[in-house]
Design a protein around this nucleic acid. Structure first.
Lengths: 348, 348
DNA sequence: TTTAGCACTCCGGGAAAAGGAGTGCTAAAG
DNA sequence: CTTTAGCACTCCTTTTCCCGGAGTGCTAAA
């Protein structure tokens, strides 16, 4: 059966009503909302059709209708109208992103809190690297004969450093040579490659120096892995408790501990800018009766971030999507702006 | 009235029973638990006394008794027997602390999760600095004429670095002089002092160099503040939902968002190694009907950490206290061990 | 195709009833 | 003076029952 225009409109009304009230919606209410141009009996007939076609469901006979996941899907794909943000909200979004970018952790946390408070659902944010990070340059600074400082600049022009404590004394005069060795053998290599390569220089240097080198390489590899790690922060998980669908403490607990302990498994959009996963479309069991809306944003061109919201399937998708893309844009802009400063310097 | 031995024993039984079951405990149950040496009627008389003295309370006539905060206090101070941890548990505690100390954040998070899972209540952990941090030494490394690397070693022998981008070109040959200036004027000073001091060197150097210096000092001050900041992590907040006293979603929500957003206001032990705050002994309103057990541990001698648990007043204080001191010891040991390595080097 | 009418279903809430755990008192016994 | 058994009473909790309302589905007429 074809979906007549009227059926579509009815579906839309059902979704929007249900989103607002969390109660199954009845034929009379729909008729009223449609301006009284048709009677509730007509609506009932249509509802019956829509139910049969799988777009609506009934918790039990003699209850109103609520949208099925399929219904939500149709709504999201075809019926939903993109929502415009008020000036005040755009303002609020940008305000919440006023933070120095060095403090990436803090920035993400902040953004998460802001999204969450804006949409009133739990939110999650992450930034992850698209390309492999490498070291572009090493330096060694003498402190005394047992301590020196390792400084390295990574391929994204960040600088890291670490105090190295040496078991064996090393003559400070040897450090430049060691640094050269590091620079010639361990730059522009991924962490795995570094460790593998380490052995091959073992016989080119004195044991003391080798110990030093291996410490340096070890630290470098750790730092690269650390920086490449995808860190996810979640915010506002406790908002779930305010929702009628999580009145059941067990259900709430399950989802909340998932958000706290298994954030890594939250969905990431694969291809598109924004992805909406409705109920059973989620792969993870715990998310099966929740919906997830997730947007991605760009950071320079070797990082990519992700900002999402978890909520009940009955979620105001239009509102959430609008706010999320607001944030995604804001973040892209923010990172773009900061990115101007570093005069991009290619490894020679 | 004096507290007879029997009264104390009864109080103890009431507390322990109530902790286990979360139900008011009746005279009959107490009699049974005490080996049947006295009858329930006798117990009733005693209960009546204890209630009058304020150690017990009744939710209503004809219900059993439950301990009042005063009752818990007496229990904690005098009746509670220190609990020994099983080998398995000690083992588990130590296992959960196997992490490199550089990753302090991660270590704290890990410890928090471990405590929480062991005691089955939400936990919080932090490490904070007792003394002011300063920079011990600066270095500047040339990258090119518009970029250089600032490296600094702080008074706790940690190294930090940052790429500085210069608006105006600077001759790499000038860097050593700049570094000297930094070392002579900005070492061993607190962040506030650094910024204040900055102006007084303005006329000693060229404008380019001054710009560079102010960037460096700015970064240093930020880094010191950042490192001094007390960071608190919480874990396992969602466990609250499993407790009968938080069946009410509103109450749970209130406490959980407190744990998520206002962790800074969680109690810190002032003087003692371990502090137990029972119900209304807490200053914060939200904590008024929860109890907090918090232990402190030492990190070297200029840092101090804190590890605590939040739960219902009906909490197994003995068990929680034992586990917390297990962790506190473990952490002290862990940090002590790592502290051996750095040959403590005093600023000259 | 739409509409009005009507019987029927099912949920939710409230009142009433039943059940039970525990107290407090009294009076007797140790 | 303390302990104990006995018993009436209280108050909570759970269950049951009943009723009203919202909403459906069907039928028959417009």
């Amino acid at each position: 059966m074809e979906l007549s225009d009227r059926k579509r409109q009815i579906l839309k009304v059902v979704v929007e009503d249900y989103v607002r009230t969390a109660e199954p919606v009845g034929s009379k209410a729909i008729a009223a909302e449609m301006g009284g141009s048709v009677s509730s009996a007509t609506i009932r007939n249509e509802l019956s059709d829509l139910t049969e076609m799988g777009y609506l469901e009934q918790p039990h006979t003699s209850a109103g209708r609520m949208p099925s996941p399929k219904g939500y899907r149709l709504y999201v794909n075809e019926l939903m109208e993109a929502q415009r943000l008020s000036l005040a909200e755009t303002e609020k979004i940008n305000q919440s992103l006023q933070l120095k970018m060095e403090e990436l952790d803090r920035l993400l946390a902040q953004a998460g809190r802001a999204v969450s408070s804006l949409v009133r659902y739990p939110a999650y944010v992450s930034a992850s690297r698209k390309t492999e990070l490498t070291v572009r340059r090493f330096e060694l600074l003498a402190v005394d004969e047992r301590n020196c400082i390792l400084v390295m600049m990574t391929s994204d022009s960040k600088v890291k450093s670490q105090l190295l404590r040496m078991q064996l004394k090393v003559d400070p005069a040897d450090l430049p040579a060691a640094a050269n060795l590091l620079n010639s053998h361990f730059t522009n290599t991924d962490p795995g490659g570094m460790s593998r390569h380490l052995m091959s220089v073992a016989d080119q240097v004195s044991p003391q120096l080798f110990l030093l080198l291996s410490q340096a390489v070890g630290f470098a590899a750790d730092a690269l892995e650390e920086a490449g790690r995808r860190e996810i922060v979640t915010a506002g998980a406790s908002r779930l408790l305010k929702l009628p669908e999580f009145r059941d403490a067990d259900k709430a607990h399950e989802l909340m501990s998932f958000l706290a302990d298994s954030k890594e498994e939250l969905p990431q959009p694969l291809h598109r800018e924004m992805e909406i996963l409705i109920g059973p479309e989620n792969v993870k069991e715990v998310l099966r009766d929740t919906s997830v809306v997730v947007a991605s944003y760009d950071i320079g061109d070797d990082m990519r971030g992700l900002i999402g919201v978890v909520g009940p399937t009955r979620m105001d998708y239009a509102a959430v999507a609008a706010r999320l893309s607001g944030f995604a844009e804001g973040l892209t802009r923010l990172f773009g702006k900061q990115e101007e400063l570093p005069p991009k310097e290619e490894p020679k």
